[in-house]
């Protein structure tokens, strides 16, 4: 091997600080706490200012003299199922398994498609069993759910991207999966707060945020997870067109 090249690489690495595993673990713990705290804080702020402090809503007035209640069992089933899906989404998007290359692209793509479908199907399925929450609520188009979902998911999404930093394969797809995972976490909060299971409302207020977050995650992934970030020119003082001195085969 070329001794000059070896010396150059070793000195370049020695000149640049890089965090050890203990430091990265500490940083990721901190970012995880930031993700959880920012999501929870956004939900609390929303509940206090937009919903008279109610974080779990069991019903509401659909129209004049028409009130609908959802049972605790329904809330437990829908939110519990959504929590399980969110945990699976976090496992897929934030953890990397046993490979430094992360999850295979097909898994990420499948996750981005199946997680929103799974959450929607679970919500509609259980609401259908209980009946009442599926009726149309003229005053609840879904815009408030859309905004609370985006508000709750934004902090976790940024934290997930900051945790991974650089991804050699599929950075946009990894970012999209992180967006869906953050959206799935936000779905749990929205599910606790929103008693409506009317399908157009669910599509606008609950599913659309996941699509928006997946797109936002893909953009963030493309911009922030690629290897180009922070890359400095390495070989100096040598012309590319010069003689192949010192190279060994």
């Amino acid at each position: 091997m070329n001794a000059e090249l070896r010396a150059r690489v070793l000195s370049a690495a020695a000149a640049e600080e890089s965090p050890t595993r203990a430091q990265v673990t500490r940083r990721n713990m901190f970012l995880s706490m930031v993700a959880a705290a920012s999501g929870f804080a956004a939900f609390v702020v929303f509940a206090v200012f937009m919903s008279e402090g109610e974080m779990v809503r069991l019903g509401g007035d659909v129209a004049v003299q028409q009130h609908v209640e959802r049972s605790i069992l329904l809330v437990l089933m829908t939110a519990g199922g959504a929590l399980a899906v969110a945990a699976a989404a976090l496992w897929l998007a934030v953890l990397r398994g046993q490979s430094m290359l992360g999850r295979p692209g097909r898994w990420l793509l499948l996750g981005c498609v199946l997680i929103p479908i799974g959450l929607f199907a679970w919500k509609v399925g259980w609401s259908f069993v209980f009946g009442d929450p599926m009726m149309a609520w003229p005053g609840r188009s879904g815009l408030r759910c859309l905004s609370v979902s985006l508000l709750v998911a934004l902090g976790p999404l940024l934290s997930f991207v900051a945790m991974r930093r650089s991804v050699p394969l599929h950075p946009a797809l990894n970012g999209a999966a992180m967006g869906v995972a953050a959206g799935a976490c936000a779905w749990v909060a929205t599910d606790l707060w929103c008693p409506v299971a009317y399908v157009p409302h669910l599509l606008l207020g609950h599913v659309l945020p996941l699509v928006i977050l997946a797109c936002l995650g893909a953009l963030l992934g493309r911009a922030m997870l690629t290897l180009r970030r922070g890359l400095q020119p390495t070989i100096t003082g040598r012309r590319r067109s010069g003689p192949v001195a010192g190279s060994s085969q």
């Binding site: 090249l5 150059r8 890089s18 050890t20 203990a22 070989i235």
Partner: peptide, 17 residues
Amino acid sequence: LMQQTLLQIHRARGTFI
């Protein structure tokens, strides 16, 4: 490219599984 690759590995050493 090899130097850049090894520097990328160096930068990401803390994330090694």
